[in-house]
């Protein structure tokens, strides 16, 4: 190619795609539960496992989950982090997130942790250490989305 040519460098495009994700019966029931300020988990009577987020099928017993259980509104942190930058999500950082195993449930579910002073990250992380108890709070008007609830420190 001739050296005195300066090629154009890029072609710019912006792609917008729209989706309607089908919830199905199980996730749909969970979202309906949120509107009544209930966190609903599924249970498999054969394996005894209680799943949150709820599952249609128990992969351990190879049977359908056959019951709904209302998860406790308190639980224990299994993993946590404070996000300070680098993520352009729906909420501006700093934000705290934790996976919490709610009472009566075997698995953990993620959500925001609110009401915590995040100005000192080290101190905030100490307060969010694994094993810490938290409780669930609901937004004033639940919409049937997982962000209808969040966690706050139990004490």
């Amino acid at each position: 190619m001739s050296k005195n040519l300066t090629p154009q460098s890029v072609i710019t495009e912006e792609v917008t795609l729209r989706y309607d994700y089908a919830l199905g019966e199980v996730a749909g029931t969970f979202m309906d539960g949120l509107k009544q300020r209930k966190i609903l988990a599924t249970r498999c009577s054969k394996s005894g496992m209680v799943y949150l987020p709820p599952r249609a099928f128990c992969e351990r017993s190879f049977e359908k989950c056959d019951g709904w259980i209302e998860a406790g509104h308190e639980g224990v942190i299994e993993a946590s982090t404070v996000v300070l930058r680098g993520f352009e999500g729906s909420r501006p950082p700093p934000i705290a997130v934790a996976f919490v195993r709610l009472d009566g449930v075997h698995s953990a579910i993620a959500n925001y942790v609110e009401g915590l002073d995040l100005s000192d990250t080290e101190r905030a992380m100490d307060r969010l250490a694994p094993g810490t108890r938290v409780r669930v709070q609901f937004v004033p008007e639940p919409q049937g989305r997982v962000t209808d609830f969040y966690f706050v420190l139990a004490q």
């Binding site: 987020p53 996000v83 993520f87 993620a110 694994p130």
Partner: peptide, 24 residues
């Protein structure tokens, strides 16, 4: 899309969650 995508979860934050528990 139902339970996780509303959180600021991507590879960095997901591994950070694991790392904090591992380090403690």
């Amino acid at each position: 899309p139902f339970y996780e995508k509303d959180m600021p979860l991507q590879t960095i934050t997901a591994v950070a969650l694991m790392a904090n528990t591992y380090m403690r």
